[in-house]
Design a binder for these strands. Structure first.
Lengths: 131, 131
DNA sequence: CTTATATATGCCTTGACACGTATATGCTCG
DNA sequence: CGAGCATATACGTGTCAAGGCATATATAAG
């Protein structure tokens, strides 16, 4: 019905294992469709379709070389993913990094008392027993 | 219950926008199902199902608080994502240093548009470049 | 011009999955 | 006990994407 379906997010793009494999392949150097096809043992149409998706999403770009197309990585979408991941980085590094461990503890303490939340249409029973 | 749904990869988990929203919510503090439901304006079953998926994949864990369940983040899967991204980090930082100027000059505008626009062009830029 | 090679695309089928509604489970309190 | 709240799960449904096969397009070579 609707055709407006476009590239939702970079995350949906890299959810596909074959596409991640293609990206990993391209890290080392640019590759033609046929080379990717052989190394990943997938059908040629499958490779082309994935590359199409990747290119539309800005993950790769291609140049023409005779009948071949050479695909190479583009950094922006991957940076975008990294940016999203950044909000959690502080959190997880706190679990290993001793320096940040106390930050984590502070945060946890706040969580414990942070039961009250803004914008509640109806208030839940406040009576609860923490075990 | 059902057949064992193997946790394919962390990437398929975070492909879902609502799940990403839940994770972003939890980065500040732990939350109950009801709180998530209200803040994200989704149905209660939807929240529960997403939390189920997130928990099976190790993104979150829960503790029982009376009739409520409090969910909080776990770092491992996010670290796993970061590890995968790492292989590209070298690549894209290289672009800042060396290649960026060149690429910027060539298609900075195009990159921006490719990422925002739904593709309605039937053909890729037909660039002639034979060697 | 004809054929081979390289890649892209259209159609079709299949399966996954997200959602809503309804219901089950579990806990608390009167 | 039973009522009520908080959360989990079952089931049916619609949407959508990935893959295979066939074919179209483009270039190269003979």
């Amino acid at each position: 019905m609707e055709y407006i379906r476009s590239v939702e997010s970079v995350f949906e793009i890299i959810a596909e294992p074959n596409r991640r494999a293609i990206l990993s392949l391209l890290v080392s150097s640019q590759q033609s469709v046929g080379e990717i096809e052989r190394q990943l043992r997938m059908s040629q149409p499958a490779v082309s379709k994935h590359l199409r998706v990747l290119r539309d999403a800005g993950f790769v770009e291609s140049t023409v070389d005779a009948q071949r197309r050479l695909y190479r990585l583009k950094p922006e979408p991957l940076r975008e993913m990294d940016a999203w991941l950044a909000q959690f980085r502080r959190f997880w590094s706190a679990h290993v990094d001793a320096l940040e461990r106390h930050l984590d503890r502070m945060n946890n303490d706040r969580m414990e008392q942070d039961r009250m939340n803004p914008r509640m249409d109806k208030k839940p029973p406040k009576k609860r027993k923490t075990k």
